[in-house]
Amino acid sequence: MDERNFTYMFYGFVVAWLIPMIYVISLARRSSRLRKETDELKQLFEEKQASARPKV
């Protein structure tokens, strides 16, 4: 392979892979935040339902 301008080609490929990788990380972080939020809300909802049930 012609090695002229190889460094800049390397930079170009790094960018082409790095930007989607950063996006994948942001997707993973968002997924874990949503999972946490869902669990909290489910728990809150169940607690509210339990407290609203008439005591025997």
Binding site: R4, Y8, G12, F13, A16
Partner: peptide, 20 residues
């Protein structure tokens, strides 16, 4: 990287266009 020929004027950097 291994099959395509080099570009006569630009050198290796022309390969950026395959993602650009």
């Amino acid at each position: 990287f291994l099959v395509l020929p080099d570009e006569a004027l630009q050198g290796a950097v022309y390969r950026i266009m395959f993602f650009h």
